[in-house]
Write a protein that binds this DNA or RNA. Structure first.
Length: 142
DNA sequence: GCCAACGTTGGC
DNA sequence: GCCAACGTTGGC
């Protein structure tokens, strides 16, 4: 079981839309490092849903429900995507500002590689972030 | 293969 | 709106 964080600009695709859609193909990734991360995702993996640019906070949790397959939005058929399903909202959204104040979280890619849109999160960081967001373990059971 | 110029992301 | 950090393109 791996943990991830995926970014979306709410102007382009927001958590509110994700709540409505429930299952959504995570398309449009056009960066090699992000692609590598998408490729490593397994069914059942969990990912934080982060609002970049507007909000700048972790607002939800999704589960990977379909592994790496060709991105239908790529005319060149070079890039791929995964499907994610809504798991739950984060009761208390975790802001970037807050993350920056926590010494244990200074190493996460969200801070160290601010441009990366799909990144791994360690189990330790995942647990800590869940505590901060007051996500109960009951919320993320299958 | 190097590097300058340019484009994009995303925080501030 | 600005800018830092990348990524990409194209001339040499």
């Amino acid at each position: 079981m791996n943990y991830w964080l995926i970014k979306s600009e709410p102007d382009a695709y927001s958590w509110q839309e994700q709540l409505k859609n429930n299952i959504e193909p995570w398309t449009g990734i056009r960066n090699h490092q992000a692609k590598k991360n998408l490729q490593s995702m397994k069914i059942g993996d969990l990912a934080f849903f982060y609002h970049s640019n507007v909000g700048k906070e972790i607002v939800g949790i999704v589960r990977i429900v379909k592994e790496y397959y060709p991105d239908p939005t790529d005319p060149d058929h070079k890039w791929s995507c995964v499907d994610v399903q809504t798991v739950c909202s984060v009761p208390v959204p975790i802001t970037l500002k807050q993350i920056k104040t926590i010494p244990e979280l200074q190493e996460i890619s969200l801070i160290k590689q601010s441009r990366l849109s799909v990144m791994p999160i360690t189990a330790e960081h995942w647990q800590l972030l869940c505590q901060l967001g007051q996500v109960s373990s009951h919320d993320i059971e299958k």
